[in-house]
Design a protein around this nucleic acid. Structure first.
Lengths: 217, 217
DNA sequence: GCTCTTAAACTAGCGGTGTAAGTTTTAATC
DNA sequence: GATTAAAACTTACACCGCTAGTTTAAGAGC
């Protein structure tokens, strides 16, 4: 087939289909040839729109990041904004867990990821946190969110009671998978509350009223 | 070459060499043929000792997990033990960051990972935490440690000042890579302190003195 | 309207991947 | 000493990311 009258591909369609494939079959099973087949096209045609496979994955990762609500930093004080951002971030990743290992490598050159980093860091500095501390806080929360989305804790345990026979405290571990949602959600809420509790204590201790900003916006 | 008088391979040598290769060149560049070449052997010979590539990676991941100190749960109260375990865990992963994405998928059937889960959970229950809560705490800390080791936060930012020109708060982001160690360490310490601070508060609030265990051991 | 350039599909092919199958020879066991 | 199992091998398959070169349609400039 030569160049068709109507272009068969565009970046948006490629990214959408790639995300659907990754969601369905995982990063390991994702290949340019399978992606092309899903788009009714031959493999190399994708390279008219993206230079490399990684560039496709970058676009997929950024489309996921773009669904995180960073507007919270304009509407809430730093602590409440952090809480809502973390929940929104995790929710976005939880819908597409298979792309998380790729996405968690860092913002790189992905625009939505950079915009998010800018919003988080800006809000913390505006609230009076010292710049180095703001960096640490953003990083610590990203660690926690990425870790929580990376692998479901509960799903990491095989559903095979015999496996745990040798471990006196894991006799019920095989049932974790069945309660995956509540285990993961409970652990995330616990950790987020604890983190924010600790941060609030440090804020009260180290950021003087004069340094505290003028609120959101 | 037929069967040699002295076996060229054994599981230990394979795992050691695989870890060295992964450390040096990353998971993406790791292949059975490259591993075999490093062992002066043809690719398929590995399959006399491991059934699949994943089985090799499992063994590599478990050898890293095995270097985490879980003895702390016998020597310290739950909070101090958690702190030391988290530091030991992160230190073990930080030496071999390239295997972390694989390892972070969960314990699966890897013995050292299961032993670690058993030790953490057992110590928390012994200290009086309700079983469900103990699961959440273990999971939350694993989220944090795995996230912190998965990708260096600082390394995720490209060293290209122009990239950040459009983001008002990221004008110094290109310098993060240069302070990678202190940024990552600072963020980890901040997060760990905050998490443990929050957990101690909940312990004081919800675990009655009667429920509290008899200490370590 | 003709020409030129670019775009978007194609086919063919390179060097690499995991791993299955079958072969050969040695070591270990009865 | 015969049998069996182990541990290397070679060959081969189907797939991978990607490059190169080809074909034709679409769009721009005169």
């Amino acid at each position: 087939m030569p160049r068709p009258r109507q272009a068969l591909l565009n970046r948006e369609r490629i990214v959408e289909t790639a995300l659907a494939l990754i969601d369905a079959d995982g990063l390991g099973a994702f290949s340019t040839r399978r992606l092309a087949a899903a788009l009714n096209v031959q493999g190399p045609s994708l390279y008219n729109h993206f230079a490399t496979k990684d560039e496709i994955l970058d676009a997929v990762a950024d489309s996921v990041t773009a669904s995180v609500d960073v507007g919270v930093f304009d509407r809430y004080d730093w602590a409440e904004a952090l809480r809502r951002w973390a929940r929104s971030y995790r929710a976005a990743l939880a819908v597409h867990p298979n792309i998380v290992p790729y996405l968690a490598q860092g913002p790189g050159r992905r625009p939505a990821a950079l915009a998010m980093a800018d919003a988080v860091y800006g809000a913390l500095v505006r609230a009076g946190w010292p710049p180095a501390r703001a960096t640490h806080i953003g990083a610590a929360l990203r660690y926690f969110v990425a870790g929580s989305a990376l692998g479901s804790f509960a799903r990491g345990f095989v559903e095979d009671p015999e496996l745990y026979a040798a471990h006196p405290h894991l006799t019920q571990a095989h049932r974790l998978r069945g309660h995956q949602r509540s285990v993961d959600e409970g652990a995330f809420t616990l950790g987020l509350d604890a983190l924010l509790h600790g941060l609030a204590a440090e804020y009260a201790r180290t950021v003087t009223p004069l340094e505290r900003g003028t609120g959101p916006g």
